[in-house]
Design a protein around this nucleic acid. Structure first.
Lengths: 341, 341
DNA sequence: TCAGCCATTTAAACCGGTTCAAACGCCGGG
DNA sequence: CCCGGCGTTTGAACCGGTTTAAATGGCTGA
């Protein structure tokens, strides 16, 4: 196992000093073209790549970004957001040569995680996802001097660059779509209330009801889980006057809710209309296919990564508003059943 | 923004040399207890944590492990494996103080990814997941001198430490369970054939059929996707004599398959029995609840991380066999329909 | 009293890059 | 012929740790 080459080996082979090699590598002006050529071919011949840790030490930049997954263990893995989001990040940082450091953390323990990331200087900046009401993380990263980008949650001003993708238009369209189909009793099964994005979707539902001139609907927590969706659905169906349509905070809850309704003997969408959120791959293949809302987490990851890279480089970045989520109408929504008066 | 403290600051405050601080930090023997105390409280007072990059440079270890996601973009995110697996990894490396570097890579381009990881010395070792037939990665990491642990795929001897979790007993149990219910025509909707684990499940199905004294069943590709599962199911139901039971390579395909069957007017499990694989959170909440196979990806991640840490430290690790996957019987399997003769 | 030993501590080199001030070689102009 | 200036190159310091060999100092036994 030959020792891997260092900048000194390249310098020797090219017949220049280490400084010159470094200049060429970072294409700094002021190096003769012929010298550049010699250095580059020497580097290529030796297969030399600068050591990340050495470079990190002297530049003070880790060349890595941090993503902390603060979601509850049982929620992580049910959510299609993160993998897609990470794919978006990757598409950006693979170009800049940065790495992505992943940390998992249980809610509540997160502050330590960020503190550790900052203290170790393992990352140059972090993504803040799943912001919650009164989230302490924006203040924390500010205190730590750690560049950060907030993913979502634009209304609470954090003083940090924010990349936002508005869920609300899709939820609003879903409600209006149902209203147009004649539904007047549209319930909502919400995600965990502490998440800003979950609350925002709930709010969009309630505002859209008002906009459509409909009475307030029943609101139940579904926790973004299958179990929560199922339980909420059972409760809704047990009401003296059950809703004719249910909008869910995500597809997982919605799919579970559909199963509950079908087990209860309801036909979808004839007896009950259902709308989800996320447009998971399964959504087109449920029975009936799920009407749902589609965001673009890949573009979100891409934009967030660009913003964070920018923030690391310049100390700040502009807020960015992405294309909002849209409604995808499929078979799980239909005309409201004619109800005995 | 005060400059963050270095080891020199701690040394000065404690009235010792930098070397002593380093010794205390790595709890090396030969430092007086009183000195240790002074150093530790000085470090605590300054809130000092050693810089990862400096440490990485002098020790030659990056204190990070690499996970390359080589799955197709459309498959990533539909699979509950990785998040759970990463949670398992995290539980180990959070104790050792290591980090987890994530890289995404399209199949085919992966060699470059590993090469880059190794060249940059960004990670001390890598997890090799989703091994495929004639996978070049084991040879590659061996050539690069990069410690690695193979996750799954025990039968193809890679010369690398392997952590395995046997899917087959669960699939076998599923087939025997169906046979006992009177099914004689049990089809299989397989995952992508190039993945070793997908092939192994297929093989388990076919062997179990033989063991149960049943004729060979129909085998169709489902690609581990919803769409593939739906398509395969349609083809199976269109057969002159459709199977009375279908085993799917994963829950996603199975769920999509269930929807297709129900849309075709079949009642489950009366007309058709269905078995999945993974036991995703949704599985208990489909209609009917999905009979499926359950592995433990968290324990897999934990064991793999332990093995990789060991391999990095000592240059090798023992192979490890985890508790095999088990069958979870729910409502989607039932007695075979009585068929007109 | 002093050599010798042990426990403890330290100075200095090293890891592999980056960066700045200084040196170099070469040119044209005075 | 010498000097100033420019384009190019380089020596050396520096980043913040680890590690080794050597120095220090206190104690014991002869």
């Amino acid at each position: 196992m030959p020792r891997r080459p260092t900048i000194a080996d390249v310098a020797k082979l090219a017949g220049v000093s280490r400084a010159t090699v470094s200049f060429v590598l970072n294409n700094r002006p002021g190096v003769a073209v012929t010298t550049q050529g010699r250095v580059r071919s020497a580097a290529a011949e030796l297969g030399w790549t600068p050591s990340t840790s050495a470079r990190a030490l002297s530049t003070g930049r880790a060349h890595a970004l941090g993503l902390v997954l603060t979601r509850e263990p049982e929620l992580i893995g049910t959510d299609p957001f993160y993998p897609a989001f990470m794919a978006g990040i990757e598409s950006v940082i693979s170009a800049t040569g940065d790495g992505l450091m992943l940390q998992m953390s249980r809610p509540g323990k997160e502050a330590d995680t960020y503190r550790a990331l900052a203290a170790d200087r393992r990352v140059d900046g972090v993504f803040l996802t799943d912001l919650r009401a009164d989230d302490t993380r924006p203040a924390l990263v500010a205190e730590l001097g750690l560049p950060a980008v907030v993913v979502g949650a634009p209304e609470t001003d954090t003083g940090l660059p924010t990349v936002n993708l508005d869920d609300r238009p899709a939820v609003r369209d879903a409600v209006l779509h149902l209203a147009q189909l004649g539904h007047r009793d549209i319930a909502y099964v919400a995600g965990p209330d502490q998440y800003s994005h979950a609350r925002r979707r709930t709010q969009a539902w309630s505002e859209a009801l008002a906009e459509a001139g409909l009475p307030a609907g029943t609101l139940l927590p579904g926790g973004f889980t299958a179990e929560g969706g199922a339980r909420a659905t059972r409760m809704l169906l047990d009401l003296p006057v059950p809703p004719t349509a249910i909008v869910y905070g995500n597809d997982l809850s919605a799919t579970a809710g559909m199963a509950v309704a079908q087990n209860a003997g309801l036909r979808l969408p004839d007896d009950l209309s259902v709308v989800g959120f996320d447009d998971v791959p399964l959504a087109s293949y449920t029975s009936p296919p799920l009407t749902t809302c589609r965001a673009n987490p890949v573009s979100w990851g891409r934009a967030s990564a660009q913003a964070l890279v920018e923030a690391v480089r310049t100390g700040g970045a502009a807020n960015l508003e992405l294309e909002p989520a849209t409604l995808v109408v499929r078979g799980s929504t239909g005309p409201a059943p004619v109800r005995a008066v």
